[in-house]
Each structure stands twice: as structure tokens, then as C-alpha cells.
């Protein structure tokens, strides 16, 4: 009986360690990446701007990872038949331009040895051609979901002129192959601030329309 009880306590300890361990590990990894990582901007492109909100997150499609990786892949991967390429782990070496925007310089089959190099662990998608990267979901509250989706979709459809910064973009912290999304920017403002600003503009527009409508009615009634 005593042995059975001891076993139960062992199970309890294991459960607590597993549960706390897993959650704390997730938090620690993310916090380390946010605090010690290098912040890089990534421009988004429209994949499906009319249906970007999937459940509770915006589906981000980062331009540099969405482009065909052919020409950037390591020779040992290129030589493989498509079936064997599927799901292969790759290491995207990131170069940052003067505006802070990151782009994939090339994909490596091993993590770079240079400690200062910026890189992200990705994999070849199941079609063997595209890249599966871990920075696609931007979780948002359902209360602002509709407005966020509309704003994000509209921003995606605005084509940036040559030399202009891509819009929208996300800031991502990169640290030892891990990436954590920081903020989504639209028109240079964090999403939440952009929505507030837009809300303010809308309210102002409504007030102006109301004032204009009232003055017209007044004029008509006087004449």
C-alpha cells in the first residue's frame, strides 16, 4: 500500500516537472530571443489578403521566405530528388539592409559557425520547393480582428513604389536560429496604434460629415 502511494507521488512529481518544464521552456526560449536577439524587419506580401484572419491570428506571409529558394539552396539539397528534399531542415542566413529589413542571403544545411551571423531554422515544405518558416502567425484579439484584417489586407494591396519600404512589415527578434515576432507595423505604426489612429480619423470624418450635413439643412431651411 505504501509502495503504491510512493509511486503515485513519483507520478505527481513527474507531472509537475513535465508541465512546468514545458511551459517554462517555452517562455524562457521566447524571452531569451526577445531580450538578447537582434531585431530585424520583414516585409509582408499578400497571399490571401481577403482572408488573412484565420481563427485568432493574421496569416503573415514574409516576402523573403515566400520567394522561391532555388539558387539559394545548398548543393547537397539541390542534388536530392524532390521526394527526399521534403521536410529537410535548413538554416536561413539573414542579411540586413540599411533600413533594418532582413532578407535571406542563402540557405545552409548546417547552422553557421559565425557567432554573429543572423539565422533562422526553417525546413523545406512538403512540396520539396517552398520554405516552411515559423513566423507566420500573428495572434490578435477577436475584438479587433475584423478591423485588423481589413487594415492588413488593404495595406498588403498597396503596392510599394520603387525604393519605398514594403508595407506592412513585422519586427522579429532573431537569436541562435530561433525567431519570435515582436510587432506588426502598418504605415509605420504598430497594428494596435494604427487601428486607434484610424478609428480617430473615422470619428473625425463622421463629425465633419455630420457638421456639413447640418449646415446644408440649415441653409436649405433659411432659403
Amino acid at each position: 500500500m505504501k509502495i503504491e502511494r510512493k509511486i503515485l507521488w513519483v507520478f505527481f512529481t513527474v507531472a509537475v516537472i513535465l508541465q512546468l518544464g514545458l511551459v517554462v521552456r517555452m517562455i524562457a526560449h521566447s524571452e531569451t530571443t526577445l531580450n538578447h536577439g537582434t531585431t530585424v524587419k520583414f516585409g509582408c506580401i499578400p497571399v490571401d489578403p481577403y482572408d488573412a484572419f484565420r481563427g485568432r491570428y493574421l496569416d503573415l506571409a514574409l516576402r523573403t521566405f515566400e520567394m522561391s529558394p532555388e539558387g539559394l539552396l545548398p548543393a547537397e539539397i539541390v542534388s536530392l530528388p524532390v521526394d527526399e528534399r521534403k521536410g529537410k531542415t535548413l538554416y536561413a542566413l539573414i542579411a540586413v539592409d540599411d533600413d533594418g529589413f532582413g532578407r535571406v542571403q542563402r540557405y545552409l544545411s548546417r547552422p553557421p559557425e559565425d557567432r554573429d551571423a543572423l539565422w533562422l531554422k526553417v525546413r523545406l515544405a512538403d512540396d520539396g520547393y517552398m520554405i516552411d518558416y515559423p513566423l507566420r502567425k500573428y495572434f490578435i484579439n477577436e475584438k479587433i480582428a475584423d478591423r485588423a484584417e481589413k487594415a492588413f489586407g488593404e495595406a498588403l494591396l498597396r503596392d510599394p513604389a520603387d525604393g519605398e519600404m514594403p508595407d506592412p512589415w513585422v519586427t522579429v527578434s532573431l537569436f541562435r536560429g530561433r525567431g519570435v515576432i515582436r510587432t506588426l507595423f502598418i504605415d509605420g505604426l504598430p497594428l494596435e496604434e494604427y487601428l486607434k489612429a484610424e478609428e480617430g480619423k473615422d470619428r473625425q470624418r463622421q463629425q465633419e460629415t455630420g457638421r456639413l450635413g447640418r449646415s446644408r439643412t440649415y441653409r436649405r431651411s433659411n432659403s
Partner: peptide, 8 residues
Amino acid sequence: VSQTYHLE
């Protein structure tokens, strides 16, 4: 926790 850190 996954949602807070936008973990894929």
C-alpha cells in the same frame, strides 16, 4: 503562452 509569444 504560444499565443502571447506568437509561437508558430
